[in-house]
Amino acid sequence: MIGCFEKILKQFVLLISLLGLLGCAPRVQRSPVGLLSSNQQEPALSGDGTKLALIVNRNGRPTVQLQEVKTGRIIQLRQLSRYQPHSSPSLSWNGRYLALIVQRRNRRMPIIEDRLMGRVHELLVPQERIPIRLSLSPTASQLAIQVAHKGKWRIEFFDMSDKLEPDQPISNRGSSIFENIN
């Protein structure tokens, strides 16, 4: 009788464990515009996970596209068409700032679009450095750039705090997650 009870108990525990594991399994879904556009590359989520920047091929040119994660609605970026081709997009926490690397004449340069103010900041990297990839901190206070310099790849940090207003979580202003690093 006791052996039977133990067997049932073991089976119950196993079932609960399996259900728990299933509950934790990540759910995969395709990007809402996945079936419409071909060759989507270089995804970049905003810190709050509501916006997605990616590179799509538009008229043969790599072009950044910004969309809402939930609905797939494409958000217009009016300032960036004269800077193509685009690469390495990066978003701040709420997606106010979109940083990316562009080609201007024969030079690669980082730029940041402030979507709230409708401004584009062209950023000059120190001489002899070629920007390869970049990553904006969630608050937009600093920018990390992978540069090619003297035949090596390096990561260099740049202070943006005197240029850009902080883009902090709306419900979390002053949170310890976003300590000032500088």
């Binding site: 300032q79 401004r119 900041h121 062209e122 600093q142 260099e156 240029k163």
Partner: peptide, 18 residues
């Protein structure tokens, strides 16, 4: 709509990556 900006390196962080 735009402005060129010379970025200020954060040397205290850049030294970590060498």
């Amino acid at each position: 709509g735009c402005s060129a900006y010379s970025m200020r390196p954060i040397y205290s962080l850049n030294n970590i990556f060498s």
